[in-house]
Every structure is written in C-alpha cells, then in structure tokens.
Design a protein around this nucleic acid. Structure first.
Lengths: 329, 329
DNA sequence: TTGAAAGCGCTAACAG
DNA sequence: CTGTTAGCGCTTTCAA
C-alpha cells in the first residue's frame, strides 16, 4: 500500500480510501491510485486489516464429518448465509472427538473468527467461556452445549422418533427394534426416549434386546441388526437412529433372508425413494438447520443482545413404503 | 500478551517464547508465565502473528458445491492433509461460476492463505499470476487451469468414459446415449471424447441425437433421457457423465415404461449397489484426488521447486448389473 | 536466560 | 479533498 501511495504520488490514507471505497477522493486521484494498484498487482492484506479492525469477517463451522451427506447441505447453507454477510467460512471436522472439537474451536478463536457454528461432539463447553466473554458469538446446532448457555438450533429428535415409532406401531408392529448412536450424543438418547414413549403409549413392553446404542460403524450396526432379527422374539420392524445407520440397515436387510422387515429411518437420504422397498423416514431439514443457526449467529454479530435462544425445527414424516409394511406374522 | 508479561513480571519476548514453545526460558519463569496466561484467559492473536510472519498456516479450497456428495470426501481428504501439516482449511463454493470462483480465490488471497486447492469453474486463471508470483502455492484438481501453468491432479476422464462405453458395447449395444455436463467444463468434453472414440473403435456411428452436453439440472437431464429413449432410433444404453446426472437418469429410468435400458455412470455413489438393477459405474477416487492435490500443495509450501506436474489418477470400472444388461432387441 | 526496540500493513483519529 | 501520526499484537533483531 505504501508502494501504491508512492507510485500514485498520494498519501497512504488516500490509497486506503480508494481500496475501501470510502468517500472523499477526487475522481482524478482515484484514477491514479487504481492505476498504481493494477500496475503493482496490489491486494489488501486482510491480516493487517483484521489486526487493526478487530473483526475478521470470517466464521468457523465445526462439525463431525464433512463427508457425511447429512452435514453437506448444512455446511452449504451456513456458507450461503456467511457469503450474504460478506464473511468467509472456515470449517473443520471434529470426528466426534471432544478433544479435537476443542482443539479446532480454539484454533479458530486464535484466528479471531467473529463467530462459531458448532455441532458439539463434547459435553463440556466451559472452555468457550473466555472466548464468548471476549466477544466471539457462538451458536450450537443439532445438540445443546454442555455447562454453558448459548443459542441452539435443533430438530425435534424426541418428537420425530416418537412419531416414527408410532407410525410403525400403527401398522401393526409390536416388536420394534431401535438402533441408535452413542449414548453420550444427546440426539441419540432423545430419539431413544421418543421410541420408548411411543412404545409405552401403545402399552407395549420394550425388551432390552431390542434397543442398542453405540458407534455407528457398519460392523456394529450390521451385527446388531442381525441379532435383533433372530432369536426367540425377533423384531418385525426397525427404527434406525440416523442416516448412516439407516443405510447400513438397508444393506443388511437386502442381504437378509426371510420375511420383509419394516424400517423407519431418522434423517432423509438421497435415493431412499428408489430402494426396494422405498425407505420411509422422519426427515430433518439440514439446510434449514444450518441457515437458521447462521442467521442467529449474524444477528448476534450485528449486536442483538437477548438471552440465549433454543430453537427446535419440526420433523416431517415421509412414508415411502418400508415403514408401512405390516408385520409378517 | 502485554498484560500477561506485566502480570508475570517478565518481558514481552519471554511470553512470546513460552507461547511458542521456544528454547531459553527458565523453568521457573515459564511457570509464572503460564500461570498468568491461564489467569488472564490469554490466547495468541494469530492475525498479528500472520502479519509479522507472513504465513497464515491456512489453505483455501475452492470447489463447485460443498453439498455435492462427490466433493465431500475430497474436501475431507484435503482437510486431513492440512491438519497433518498444522494448517486450517478455508473453503468456499464457486457454484460453477467463473466470476464467483475468482471472487472467492481473491478473497482467500487477501487473507493470505498459504496455498490454494482449486477445482476450477472458469477457463482463464491469469488473474492468479500476481498471487503465484507473490508466493501463493496453487494446485488444481479435476480440471486443468486456463492460460497458466500449475500443478494439476485429475482422474482419467477420457479413459474412464472410453472404457465404460466399450463395456456397454461389449454387451451388445450399438445405440448408446451420452449425457454430459456443460461443454465449457473440461471433464465433460474429455468424457464425450472417450465415448466417441469407444464408439468409433467399434465402427459405430454416433447419431447427434444421442449426445447431449449441458447443465446437469434434473429437468434437462430427465427431458434428454426421455428424448433419447423415444423416437425412431432410441438408445438401448446410456452413459451418464457424472454422479448428479447418473442419479437423475436412474430416477427417470425407474419411471420409464418399456424394456430395461442399460446404464453406466461416471463416478460412484452411495447405494448404487442397492438399486434395481444395481448401477455399474466407472469410479474415480475423490478422496485420493484430494489427498494427492493437498500433498502436492504442501510439497510446494515446503519449498520444493520443480516444473508444474500433471498427475492423472486411474479409474476403476465397477460392474454391478445395470451396465451388463443386454439390448432389448 | 532475558528484554528493548523496531516494524509487519493496515485503519482511526485528527489535522490541514 | 488529502495527509500525518499512532498503534492494533505479535515476532525479529540485537544487545545485556
């Protein structure tokens, strides 16, 4: 910028004005400055700008796994909102590890992102308190933060699981299995609770063998699916607790010998309608989740101060066939 | 940092040494400094550090659409490599618009990312020359840059399309349709060329009605699919030029009345093996693409100077059923 | 082992 | 309309 000023024969501040499109530069001067800028290939150094202004015009997004199709639309939606506010998006995957989440979040804070959208992996977010006090805006998505207060945007996990399970029961099932994520993940336990309540409301007992919470790697899910489908009291329907699980269950059911098993999945996924049978789901809207969270974040950045908000987005039951199968006995 | 120094009763530089784990601080002093750091909730301001050091330890990734399942593993792989090198990943979607690509790239450069991994949307990248001269490392993925020299990592589009088409021909097809992306996207024309060469090698003419390049929105793809399947000389097999297209074609074929149509898709996609019939594809390895590109980038950042490299990764034909259907006549 | 001073490139505040 | 000065928070250099 100094060089540009020298070449254009003007002061530093004038160049700054031109670069930032500020008022108060004569057309002629502006022209000379612009010429110098192009000639020198000058581009403003945003690090210096950030240092001076205190704002980076960038926000961070921390999610579990960028490659999970569920998060792709969410991430995209956050990016869109950021772009609309002139901000860049820095993102990272926590790989469901609380340590990695913290490491990532603190790295983003060191870079002085203006705000953070976090899909929490851990359940203790007190490490964020100094950052929040220092002015970083934080919004949580999909799950509530642990031990701190902050904005949260979630889907109605409990209601969705309850409605999905009730849907299976309405089609005559009495032995329904539930395959969920690890118990330390809030949504997993909430969905399990929805399942249990739906069963209870129909006066049905839940055999402990019918529920399974744990890692969603295909090996475990496949093994648990097989286990629930065999034995003295096999389930006639399954509720899969998230999209990764549903896909694995579908694979397992395709290989499964015997009468058709009903299936409801939590989360929608691409091509669900083209499988045999088409897969019924209770669907969240990940893009809406991301959009809402990002907008909430920018509201905070725009200076809106109000107590932390807890938003819950509704869930939509999509009946396609697999959830409407009747029990085989 | 100043505050920390004051509180610990040491000089600024000593705090800096402790924060950066440098040599030459007595155990006792270090202890005092660390205490002050925790007490004050101090975190190094990376903007200032960047300004001083000239390196940001962050790289940019510019792709078409974060929500496209094809790019998710790629993005993830780049992130992994970045993480291994202690760098953060900033990413953005160009939405296939050359203007937006440039805007995004320049924004990333203004932020002084150390390097860029770009899946180009445009075909003129001369705007990058000043940045490259200024020391930004750039690697292109999936397609070559336009009018500049730089590292490129690609899949063998030509060979894959040729092999996939030949596979259909080997199963007896003589009228094969090709549905591709917009002609200004390199991979689209290369895949078309592979298709044409495979046809020519079998001595088969290509009716202009059998090929279609253009936007991959479902409406256009569906309409073109229907068009190719009707009329006086309908195709008996289709080659779909990318994963988005393949999925749309699958949907269209599922709704299609009449004898089964063979299908080969470019790019693999989740659940392809569970469709009816299972979809045969020529598959790239997007994670490998991303990993290779990122590693090439960091080689450059580590100071390796060698002429730009052009890497081509092989493609794998996955026969699942849809590509092995014989023609219906 | 420690610290003082200079300066990275920019913008805010205040002159002219 | 334009320029000068100070300083954002850090690291580099050099001296103690």
């Amino acid at each position: 910028m100094k060089d540009v000023a020298a070449r254009a024969g003007v002061g530093l501040k004038t160049v700054s004005r031109v670069v930032n499109g500020e008022q108060g530069v004569s057309v002629d001067t502006e022209h000379r400055v612009r010429e110098a800028i192009t000639a020198l290939g000058f581009r403003r150094n945003d690090s210096a700008r950030t240092l001076r202004k205190g704002r980076t015009a960038s926000i961070g997004l921390v999610l579990e796994d960028l490659a999970d199709p569920f998060y792709a639309p969410l991430s995209r939606a956050v990016e869109e909102v950021a772009r609309a506010h002139g901000a860049l998006l820095i993102n990272g995957s926590s790989a469901e590890s609380p340590e990695r989440e913290q490491e990532l979040v603190l790295a983003l804070c060191a870079r002085r992102v203006d705000g953070l959208v976090i899909i929490p992996a851990g359940d203790d977010h007190r490490y964020l308190t100094p950052e929040i006090d220092a002015g970083v805006a934080v919004t949580f998505v999909d799950r509530a933060p642990g031990l701190i207060e902050a904005d949260v945007v979630r889907s109605d996990s409990y209601g969705g699981a309850r409605e999905g399970t009730a849907h299976l029961l309405a089609h005559g099932h009495r032995r329904v299995g539930f395959l969920g994520d690890q118990p330390h993940i809030q949504t997993a336990t909430e969905r399990l609770r929805g399942y249990r309540d739906a069963m209870a409301e129909s006066g049905l007992p839940v055999d402990p063998a019918w529920t399974s919470l744990g890692p969603t790697d295909p090996e475990r899910i496949s093994a648990e699916t097989r286990r629930m489908l065999t034995g003295p009291r096999p389930v006639t329907a399954l509720f899969a607790g998230n999209n990764r699980t549903t896909v694995t269950v579908v694979r397992e059911l395709a290989a499964h010998q015997g009468p058709p098993v009903a299936l409801m999945g939590f989360d929608d996924f691409e091509l669900a309608e083209l499988l045999t049978p088409p897969v019924s789901v209770v669907a969240q809207d990940p893009a809406q989740l991301g959009r809402t969270a990002a907008e909430l974040l920018f509201r905070r950045l725009d200076g809106v101060t109000e107590p932390p908000r807890q938003l819950t987005l509704p869930i939509r039951l999509v009946a396609r066939g697999s959830g409407e199968l009747h029990p085989y006995e």
